[in-house]
């Protein structure tokens, strides 16, 4: 029996810890994160507050748990936008290779790629006001060309294969062939890309929240926890270290998982590993 790559196991474990924390936070958190009790401010770790409290007396563990919810939700929807719009565009471009449609789609992608993504995200949130929804939109738009390119690249090599010709002689149209033959065979590429975009989405959300353009108070978010801890980084370093380490571990976990998934899903690497 072949064992799974360690990167997948470790990455999967890390990611599921944070996912579990986010899910649990819907049902139960140790302390209410909107409860500001100044008497409890800056408690050390241990005791009633497992990881201590911040300058407003909020429980850090609870904030990290609810923050995970925000981060994951933003990244998930952003990746969803990328896949939902990018993949059909990429498939359409590949199915009509060399046509005007292909050119329009791919040059449109280049146009989006030409802008630095965070700057545009800041622009969007600055124009439409800072909120989690706008952060999602800003991050999601930049996922579209990524998935469009991956889908088109994978699909182009498939379109030359004989089974696609066979499907065409069976009278199937481009849409049907793309859905039945192409999409399942590029799914592995898309899954791997999705984990990478997911981790980038988490980073982007943290960055936007850090500059105050992401989720707004009182909704906790990892990026804003970092920003709020900034002034006290010398007196109470744990306030910054905890969300920082959380972001690092989450992103690391997702990247490891992406690596591991690629090893498992790519038949060429699979053969090399056994």
């Amino acid at each position: 029996m072949r064992h799974l790559p360690y990167s997948l196991l470790i990455g999967g474990a890390l990611s599921s810890i944070f996912l579990a924390a986010a899910l649990i936070s819907f049902l139960w958190v140790p302390h209410d994160v909107t409860d500001l009790v100044i008497a409890n401010r800056l408690q050390p770790a241990g005791g009633e507050f497992l990881l201590g409290t911040d300058q407003f007396g909020r429980d850090l563990l609870s904030m990290l748990m609810v923050g995970a919810r925000t981060s994951i939700a933003v990244a998930l929807v952003a990746v969803g936008i990328g896949i939902g719009l990018g993949v059909p565009l990429g498939l359409a471009a590949a199915a009509n290779r060399g046509s005007l449609l292909d050119e329009v789609i791919m040059r449109g992608n280049d146009l989006i790629f030409a802008f630095p993504s965070l700057v545009i995200a800041i622009l969007i949130t600055a124009v439409f006001g800072p909120s989690a929804v706008n952060a999602i939109l800003a991050i999601g738009i930049f996922n579209i060309p990524v998935f469009a390119r991956v889908a088109r690249g994978g699909a182009l090599s498939l379109w030359t294969l004989d089974y696609i010709l066979a499907a065409r002689t069976a009278g199937k149209g481009k849409v049907r062939i793309s859905a039945e033959h192409i999409l399942p065979n590029i799914a592995n590429l898309l899954i791997v890309q999705a984990t990478i975009q997911f981790s980038l989405g988490i980073l982007a959300e943290a960055a936007l929240s850090y500059v105050g353009l992401g989720a707004q108070p009182p909704t906790p978010s990892w990026g804003r926890m970092l920003a709020e801890a900034q002034t006290m980084i010398y007196t109470h370093p744990m306030l910054a270290i905890l969300p920082g380490v959380t972001i690092v571990l989450m992103v690391l976990g997702l990247n490891l998982m992406g690596d591991g998934l690629r090893d498992v899903l790519d038949p060429r690497l699979r053969r090399a590993r056994t």
Binding site: D162, L165, A166, H181
Partner: peptide
């Protein structure tokens, strides 16, 4: 077709 490997999904 020719290629017995590329002819099937």
């Amino acid at each position: 077709f020719q290629d017995p490997y590329g002819s099937f999904n």
